[in-house]
Design a binder for these strands. Structure first.
Length: 453
RNA sequence: GUGGAUGUAGCUCAGUUUGGUUAGAGCGCUGGAUUGUGGUUCCAGAGGUCGCCGGUUCAAGCCCGGUCUUCCACCCCA
């Protein structure tokens, strides 16, 4: 016997039940995206490596899946040439394509490439898989779907507001309690300016991000080890120790960031957004979280992250504003903002909480028992009538024992079974059995359609 | 990428400590009791080269090494 077949690490097969549930998530999200006026696009699974590299930081580059060039690479080079290839250079010589890491960067590429046909501001949504060479765990896969919504070509904060509304609506419709966290990169920039370490943005945000996990002392120690001046750390301390409501935090920052132009600008954006939210409150908890930094280094303004309030699984949605992502592809001065829903994690959360709707899980509504050729011929027109009326129905393909056919209906969770034998044909009726109750009734084809519509 | 666990029937798991003849259970599956009635019950049956490769041994599911998978922490994030 050959070895059992398998699939690569971090990838998954989806069963019919799983697909039904996944589609429930995709359908819900897609429907909401549409009602806000977003348009669908798709981009290829692979991009030029040059489009992907350097957009996600050093860590991100390592997590890119690279595609080996086709053809015999070695053949084109002499042994001498081969031997003189510098270490680490080989990769770029034998691979020029990679699998997409997210949908935002390919979108930026798309916008630049199609700039002449796009009507700005361009609102698009995109639901496709992405790939990351991460080490898999629960809620962390090497192939997973993202559902992105972005607006590009508009600086207005109303876009941020709209995205918050979308996030709130998606999770409310899916029946999940979530916390929507927001922050602003400009405020973080303001903070590092105020403490006199304008170049240490990354170190400081990473440290702030760890605050909840490791505590104040360890964070300060780490900053010291990273070479931050003692004086700077001292000035950062009040930010780290800040507690209380979003409103209180904003009050504090008002004083703290005084004099930092960019910091004040970020704070003003935050308070405007909170103002809009106050006028039209979200169902979800909505809060300012200064420890929210987000790694993807193209964000420049608002940043968002959504976490489940009921299941611990990391963020299930995230995003932010990027002022110059298209600049890398040669189109300057176009600002965008967007968020990405992690369908696979949302699936895990819904599964754990058992919140998938039951009604989606049955497809076929009616099964005709197969008594034989003559009866089957009689049934086909009735099947046609049912299907034209949108009632999913099927005839058991084999003339099997009744017990077997009933068991099939049972296993498939088909709610109704129709019996059409000699007697029924003669009387022009169908015996309809409701599986749950066991009740049976005799109906004409028209009555049957009415009954199941 | 770093550290730590895990893998026995379709599924959930015993058995591994002290290596020793045919590897177990429950659920599921197949058939029958019930040849136009499923879910309950009863009876019978099928199904495993103990993740894979190698080593130690007279003998390995059990000990050792490697490898893959899944999971946990870090990292990062969806």
């Amino acid at each position: 016997m050959a070895d059992k077949p398998s699939i690569p690490k971090g990838t998954r097969d989806f069963t019919p039940l799983e697909m039904t549930r996944r589609n429930h998530i995709f359908d819900t999200i897609r429907k909401i995206f549409k009602t806000y006026g977003y348009l669908p696009i798709e981009t290829p699974a692979m991009e030029h490596l040059s489009s992907l590299m350097g957009k996600y930081g050093d860590e991100g580059d390592k997590l890119l899946f690279k595609i080996l060039n086709s053809g015999d690479f070695k053949n084109k080079l002499s042994d001498d040439e081969l031997a003189t290839i510098p270490a680490g250079k080989l990769g770029t010589m034998i691979s020029e394509k990679g699998l997409r890491y997210d949908l935002t960067v390919p979108f930026a590429r798309y916008v630049v490439q199609h700039r002449n046909e796009i009507v700005f501001p361009f609102k698009r949504y995109q639901i496709q898989p992405v790939w990351r060479a991460d080490r898999p765990q629960r809620g962390r896969y090497r192939e997973f779907y993202q559902c992105d919504v972005d607006v590009i070509g508009s600086d207005s904060l109303l876009n941020e507001f709209e995205l918050i509304r979308i996030m709130d609506q998606v999770f409310s419709v899916l029946g999940l309690k979530v916390v929507i966290k927001m922050n602003n990169r400009k405020v973080l920039t303001g903070i590092v300016e105020m403490i006199g370490e304008p170049d240490r943005m990354i170190d400081v945000t990473v440290a702030i991000d760890k605050l909840e996990k490791v505590g104040l002392e360890k964070v300060m120690l780490e900053l010291e080890q990273k070479g931050l001046k003692r004086d700077s750390i001292k000035r950062l301390a009040p930010v780290l120790q800040m507690e209380g409501s979003s409103l209180k935090k904003m009050k504090f920052l008002e004083g703290y960031l005084e004099g930092s132009h960019i910091g004040e600008e970020g704070l003003s954006e935050i308070s405007q957004l909170f103002g809009l939210m106050e006028n039209d409150p979200a169902e979800a908890e909505f809060e300012l979280d200064l420890t929210l930094a987000r790694g993807l280094n193209y964000y420049t303004g608002s940043i968002f992250e959504v976490k489940s309030a009921e299941v611990q699984i990391g963020s299930i949605c995230g995003g932010g504003r990027y002022d110059d992502l298209t600049g890398i592809f040669g189109l300057d001065g176009v600002s965008g903002v967007g968020v990405s829903f992690g369908a696979d994690r949302i699936y895990d959360v819904l599964l754990q909480l058992d919140r998938f709707p039951r009604k989606d899980e049955m497809d076929t509504q009616l099964l005709f028992v197969n008594f034989g050729q003559r009866e089957a011929l009689h049934i086909f027109p009735i099947l046609g009538q049912l299907r034209k009326n949108g009632i999913a129905s099927e005839l058991y393909p084999d003339v099997a024992k009744m017990k077997k056919q009933m068991s099939y209906a049972n296993a498939r969770k088909i709610p109704f079974v129709a019996l059409v034998g000699e007697q029924e044909i003669e009387d022009g009726v169908i015996t309809l059995k409701e599986m749950e109750t066991g009740n049976q009734e005799r109906l004409t084809p028209d009555q049957l359609v009415d009954r199941l519509s």
